[in-house]
Design a protein around this nucleic acid. Structure first.
Length: 284
DNA sequence: CCCCAGGTAGGCT
DNA sequence: AGCCTACATGGG
């Protein structure tokens, strides 16, 4: 990946492997705004603006180092796609070319995906927006994602009013665990061990755990299975009423170390194909 | 009225 | 261990 760091921005030269629309729309993050000329991304307590300039993508931010890591600029996606092409998913790879799997803040990812359970993306976005508005630290013109400490005094009825529904107690329990010393530093922990640890948190089951491992800790050897992946699985493998965990195991075995990448390309392509929204507009 | 959404917890066998 | 069901909320 070819890019240059400056004091207040990163210039990405290879826009083939950095497509802002794909990055924000593929379902891994929920706090972003699209406008005609740029995309605004919120990550933890930081913000960056993505826009095109000639043949480059500009990442405008005061936190250059943070976003260099966040966008995982050291990973070569041409290589990733080359390896994935062996599995015969070229259509998905072509469609999603330019998406990147982010390295997001663990706390934010944990809370966000607890909210995501049995929920749809537009509503998840709304709930998290209200959560930030209500509990997030006010920064220059936006709200940071609230830390566990800031969520500690949130009552169940407040969270329900925001729209969390029955997930409100899950979030409260998990906030309590984190404030009580639950160690979220799992970067060096083995995938299965980290997975088991995350699943001790309330509201974190196998699928949510896999999303956290993939989107926060850069564990690419997991394959989160949600309702969309189940449909893909049934379409491709044909085996209906197979258990989700069993699907995840088999898919993980099939794609190995690049499972997470495969999952994102497949999820993104299939979901767009079915929904038939926004597809025409993806030009950036 | 129904079904669905990036599922999970708790209860049962 | 594995299987079943209730669960808030809003949109189609």
């Amino acid at each position: 990946m070819l890019y240059r760091k400056e004091s207040d921005r990163i210039v990405v030269y290879d826009k083939e492997d950095f497509n802002p629309l794909h990055i924000v729309r593929c379902g891994q993050l929920f706090r972003y705004n699209e406008s005609k000329d740029f995309i605004e991304i919120f990550a933890g307590k930081f913000r960056s603006i993505l826009k095109r300039e000639n043949d480059c993508v500009i990442i405008d931010t005061n936190e250059v180092d943070y976003f260099e890591n966040y966008f995982d600029l050291s990973t070569d996606y041409a290589e990733v796609r080359k390896n994935l092409a062996k599995f015969g998913i070229e259509e998905s790879l072509f469609f999603g070319k330019g998406l990147r799997i982010l390295k997001q803040d663990p706390e934010e990812t944990v809370f966000s995906f607890i909210v995501s359970a049995n929920n749809n993306i537009p509503r998840i976005r709304g709930i998290l927006e209200r959560l930030c508005e209500r509990y997030g630290e006010l920064r220059e013109g936006y709200r940071a994602f609230p830390k566990a400490e800031a969520l500690k005094d949130a009552s169940e009825s407040e969270l329900r009013a925001i729209g969390l529904g029955y997930r409100a107690p899950y979030l409260i329990e998990t906030v309590k665990a984190i404030c009580g010393g639950f160690d979220l530093n799992l970067y060096e922990t083995d995938t299965d061990e980290a997975r088991a640890k995350l699943m001790t948190l309330s509201g974190v089951g196998s699928k949510v755990a896999d999303c956290i491992l993939l989107f926060a800790y850069a564990k690419r050897d997991v394959f989160p299975v949600d309702t969309w992946v189940k449909r893909i699985y049934k379409d491709v493998i044909g085996d209906s009423d197979e258990k989700t965990d069993s699907m995840a195991r088999k898919l993980r075995k099939k794609f190995g170390e690049i499972s997470g990448y495969a999952q994102q390309y497949l999820f993104y392509y299939y979901r767009n194909k079915v929904l038939q929204t926004m597809t025409e507009e993806i030009v950036l």
